[in-house]
Design a protein around this nucleic acid. Structure first.
Lengths: 205, 205, 205, 205
DNA sequence: GTCTAATCGAGACGGTACGTCTCGTCTTCAC
DNA sequence: GTGAAGACGAGACGTACCGTCTCGATTAGAC
C-alpha cells in the first residue's frame, strides 16, 4: 500500500494490524469530522496507535486519506445485465452509492483539491483510484461490442481516448450531481443520464 | 457580496477598496500557495489590511475563497456560432480555460469539498457559481430550439431537470478531465466530448 | 526582565499580569516536578496562559527559570549586627535559607549546568543573580572597614579581585554543602564556616 | 560499577568492552553536545552498541553520566610539596584542571541538579565522587599535622566535621569560580584562595 | 466645528494541531 | 541468552494559524 518493503531484514517488523486499524480509524474520523477537522493525532488515538507509527507509514494527511478512500472503490463490479444501458445504469448506481457515503464525500474531493499542487499525490490518486476503476469501462465496452451494441474501435489510440472520455463523463457527472448540485444520483437520474450518454441530447429528447 | 449593509447609518463607512484588494490578494495567494497553505493572515498582509478588517467582512477562509473564485466565472458568455455543436464547443472551451487557471483549480474543488459538511457554504457556492452559470445552458437551448436543432421541452419540470442534467454532465466532465485526469481539455477533447453529448456513444462512434 | 520594551507603540499591549503569573507558575512547577520534569506547556497551563504567550516572552526553559529563580534572591539583605562575623553569619544563613527552598535547589544548579554551553544564558545568570548579590559583599566590607575590622584595600583592582574571591568562597561553600553534601547549612555549620573564613584553618582550630 | 553481576551463570556473557566503549562515548557526547542534548540513542550509536545493551546496564542518563564523569576524578593525587599551602595549591590546581574539561563541566552540575529530587542518584554521586575524593583532605591534614602546621584534632567527631567543611569550601569555591563566575581557576587565583583558606580574611589582607 | 460611532492598523491573547524528537520497552533474527 | 536493528506507545518540543480582543488613531456623517 504505502510501504514498498524496501530492504530491511532485521529489527522488529511493522505491525500489519496497525495499518488496518489506521485506515479504518481514518474512515471513521472522516465520517464524524470531515476532512478539514480530521487530525492525524485523533486518527492515531482512534486506532490505538502512536502518532509516530502513523507518520512512519504515511507522509501526511493526504496520502493517508487517499489510501483510506481508495479501498472503498474496490467493491465496484460490473454485473452482466444483458444490455449496455442496463450495465451502465448498474455500475453508475454502484458508484453513486459509494459517493453517497460520507467518508467518500468528505475525503475524495479534498484530496483531489490538494493534488492540484502536488504531483506525487495526483499520481497516487490516479494509480490507486482512477486507473484501477477504468477496468469497468473496458469490460463494459467489450461486452457491448460482443453483443453488437458498439462497433469495434478504429485503432488502439482511439480506443484509449474513448475510454478516458467516457470515464471523465461518467465519473464527472456523478460527482458533480452528488457533491456540487448536492442532489441524489438516484435511479431516475441515472436513467436520464444513461439515455443522454447513449443517445445524445437530440436522441434522448 | 458578503455584507448585507445591515442597519448602521453612522460611523466610519467600510472601505470599498479593501474588498477589491482582499479578493485580488486571495486569488494571488491561491496561485502562489494553493488552498491548503493559504492563510487569512497572509491574505490580509498581501492586501495591506488588518486581519480584523478581513474577519469583519467574511466569516472564514471558505466564504472568502468562494467569493474570490466566483468572480472568475462571470466572464463566461455564449457567442452565437451558428450551430448547437459550435455553441457548446465554444462555451466548454471557455469554461476549460478558466478551470485551467491555478487560482480556480486550487480553490474550487477545495470549497466544494468543504461544502460537504457545511450547508451554508454549499448554498453559497450554488448561488454564486452554479446557478449563476446555468444561464448559459438555458440560452444555448433556446437558440437551438429556435434553429430547430432541439425539440421544445414537454413540460417545465422536464425542462428544469434536463438543464440540471446537462450542467452536471458538462461541468462534471470538464472538471474531471482537468483536475482528476489532469489532462488539458483542449479543442480536440472538446470536439470529442461534444460529439458524445449530442449524438451519444453509439452515434459518435 | 526579559523584554526591553523595544519600539512598538501600536497593537495590543502585553499583559503585565501574565508575566507575574508565569513566573509564579514556574516556581510552583519547580517545587512539584523539579527541573527535568518541568515542561513549558505545563507552566503555561498553570499560569492560565497560552504556550505562545510564554514563548513570546522567553526564549526557552532556561531563560524562564533564571528569571523565576532570580526573584528569590532579591529578598537578601545585610542587617547590621555589629561585627563582621555576625554580619557574615546573618547573610549566609539567609542565603542558605533560600537555597533550602526546593524551587531554588531544583532550578539553580540546572541552569548553571546549561550555561556551560550557552554564553547568553551564562551572562543572564551572572547579571540577574551573581552580580546583583555582590552588593552584599561590598556593603559588608565597607562596614567592616568603617569598624576597623578590615584594612582598606590596596587598589581598586585588588578590591574587585577580593570581592569576587569571597563571593566564590561563600556562595560555593553554601551551595556545595546544601546540594552536593546534602546537609543543612544550619547555624552551627555557618558558625564554623565563618570562623574559617575570618581566621583561616590554623586560626580556627 | 553499575552491574552487580547478579546470578546468571549461563548464556552469552556480557561484553566488557561494551562498558568501556559506552562510557567513552558518553564523555565524547558530553563534550560535543553537552548534557541536555545528549541522548542515549546517540551514545549507543557512538559506542557501536544497541540501545538495549545500554539500558540493560544503566538505569538512565543520570546514572550513566555519573559513572562516566566519576572516572575523571580518579586521577587526582596529593603530591608532597613540603608545606600545607603548597600541597593545597597543588591539589586545587589539579581539581580545577579536571573541572575545566568540557565533559566534566557539562555533566557534573547537571547530575547534581538532578540529584536534588533523586535520593539514589545523590547517594551514587556521593559515593563515587565526593567521598572518594575526601581522601585528599584526610591525607593533606595528616601531613600538615606531622609537620606541625596544624594541631591534632580535639575529637573524631570534630575531625570529621572539619574535613567535610574544608571539602565544601574547596570544592565549592573551585566549582563556583569555574562554572558560575566562569573565570579560570588559575595559579594566581589558587594562590589567593589558599591564602584566605589558611589565614582568613584578615590575615590574608 | 464639534461630536460620535464604526472603521482602520497593529499585534497580543487563549487555543489547537502540526510534524519531529527522544524516551524506555518490545519484538524479531543472528550468533 | 546476548546483541544489533528497529518498530512501538507515550508525550514534550517549538511553530504556525486560528479567530478574538484590545489598543490608539482615522474618518465621515449628524448636529
Amino acid at each position: 500500500m504505502q510501504s514498498r518493503t524496501p530492504a530491511s531484514r532485521t529489527g522488529r517488523p511493522r505491525s500489519a494490524a496497525a495499518d488496518t486499524a489506521i485506515l479504518a480509524a481514518t474512515r471513521a474520523a472522516l465520517v464524524e469530522l470531515g476532512w478539514s477537522k480530521l487530525t492525524l493525532g485523533d486518527v492515531a488515538t482512534r486506532a490505538g496507535v502512536a502518532k509516530t507509527t502513523l507518520y512512519r507509514r504515511w507522509a501526511g494527511k493526504n496520502e493517508l486519506v487517499v489510501d483510506a478512500v481508495a479501498e472503498l472503490f474496490d467493491e465496484l463490479e460490473l454485473p452482466d445485465r444483458g444490455t449496455l444501458a442496463a450495465d451502465i445504469e448498474g455500475v453508475v448506481l454502484q458508484f453513486a452509492a459509494i459517493l453517497a457515503r460520507p467518508e467518500a464525500k468528505s475525503g475524495l474531493m479534498a484530496v483531489v483539491a490538494e493534488s492540484v499542487r502536488d504531483d506525487a499525490l495526483r499520481e497516487r490518486i490516479r494509480a490507486s483510484i482512477v486507473e484501477r476503476q477504468k477496468r469497468l469501462v473496458l469490460e463494459g465496452r467489450s461486452r457491448a461490442q460482443a453483443r453488437g451494441e458498439l462497433p469495434p474501435e478504429a485503432s488502439p489510440e482511439e480506443a484509449a481516448r474513448t475510454v478516458d472520455l467516457i470515464f471523465d463523463i461518467v465519473a464527472g457527472a456523478v460527482v458533480h450531481r452528488t457533491l456540487v448540485s448536492s442532489e441524489p444520483a438516484d435511479e431516475e437520474w441515472v436513467r436520464g443520464f444513461t439515455r443522454v450518454l447513449l443517445l445524445g441530447l437530440a436522441g434522448a429528447a
